[in-house]
Amino acid sequence: MGEKLAENPHDGIAVRGVARAFGSVEAVRHADFDVPPGSVTGLIGPNGSGKTTLMLMLASLLQPDSGSIRVAGHDPVADPAAVRSAMGWMPDVLGSWASLSPRTALEVTGRMYGLERATSATRAAELIDLVGLGALADQPARVLSRGQKQRLSLARALVHGPQVLLLDEPASGLDPAARADLRTLLVRLASEGTAILVSSHVLAELEEMADAAVYMTAGVTASRDDVSRAASAGRQWRIRSVGNAPLTPLLLQVGVDAARITEDNRGVLVSVNSEADAAALLAAVIGAGAEVRAFSPALGEFEHTFLDLNRGGVQ
């Protein structure tokens, strides 16, 4: 299944018709997507939709049953060494050598990527600064908290300056400041030409850094058409007024159908078909004299698309 890829389509990630089953469980049934260099792409899907299996195949740890993968232009099955020297992977399972300090662990990892002893020591020092582990750099890793291990894991994925970065749930366990740092870092790496694939459940957060998304449901990535249909499907906009004055009577007055209005504790939700309709609605409400203090989509774009795709069911 799926068309074959030519060598070197681009230096990011290219996946065509990839499938992988574990016995009778088809973890990934049909994955098809691209992550071009310089892009941060979110990998979005419910639990058990095959995200981690897909990541493992990209990370050259697992062979696909069918389909083809190119990471930085190389096939992870035929030439894992080439893929590994160009790819950084941060697993969802946090593992660290318990008795080694972050500095030693990073130095050893650097040397495992073939860096010279001196180079890998310099690189380790840079990365410790970058992820903010300075105070704990020489303590054994067993004293690190979950969030600190997460940062160490990120640093390890960056040791050899990879062109392709695979991050499996990188933000879980991080405090808000560290999340902001992560976001800044990923955006910077992307601007330097790195192709980044991030899987996460926190869609609002992906929204802030990802410029594209791959939606995955039951082992299948959603096609471009499905995604654009879902993204443009009717969605709810939230309207809040100053002092939370009731808005429903006013909405009915400007001709909004009662069936499109839902009220909750945080204001009023109105179903709208398109962004143009939303703009028209805002103009009408303000024209009718409402003191609007907030007017926004009730859900982020990724979340909306994700929910809509899952609700409709792909295929």
Binding site: L61, W89, G95, M112, G114
Partner: peptide
Amino acid sequence: GERDAGTLATTQVTLV
């Protein structure tokens, strides 16, 4: 044991 501790795969993705 390393697989359980999650440190096997991170070694396997290096050039070792």
